[in-house]
Design a protein around this nucleic acid. Structure first.
Length: 110
DNA sequence: TGCTTGACAGAAG
DNA sequence: CCTTCTGCCAAGC
């Protein structure tokens, strides 16, 4: 079992960002994945918040299907209501409480 | 340097 | 269900 350092070197930060963008780019239409899952797959399990930060502040991220990233409870990003519309257009179902039905739309990369 | 802020997660009330 | 708190870390100030 690998030991994960709590902080990233600049090189690791670069690799992390690239992994995040790669993974997000692979999310299929009509499916969603979570911040924590992406962070874990990128090799930094405790950096879920960094995934959100990366998608929000990395130039070019808008070109990726970043609207397909929600939190673990299926909640959409605060202050970005359009995200729900985009997902619904792809056929993603929302529950009564306004959360994505994760049990039927969660996607996990290989 | 020290405190505050998040596109998070999990637990508590 | 919703809000709030704690743990988490990089960024901003």
């Amino acid at each position: 079992m690998r030991e994960y350092p709590s902080t990233m070197t600049p090189e690791e930060a670069r690799a992390f960002r690239d992994d995040v963008l790669n993974i997000v780019g692979q999310i299929p239409r009509g499916r969603v994945t979570t911040y924590g899952l992406i962070a874990t797959l990128a090799g930094w399990p405790s950096h879920a918040r960094m995934v959100g930060r990366t998608l929000r502040y990395t130039p070019g991220a808008e070109l990726l299907p970043c609207h397909r990233v929600v939190n673990k409870e299926g909640r959409t990003a605060p202050g970005w209501n359009w995200q729900r519309t985009l997902l619904e257009e792809e056929g993603v179902r929302f529950k009564e409480n306004g959360h994505v039905d994760m049990s039927s739309h969660l996607w996990e990369p290989d």
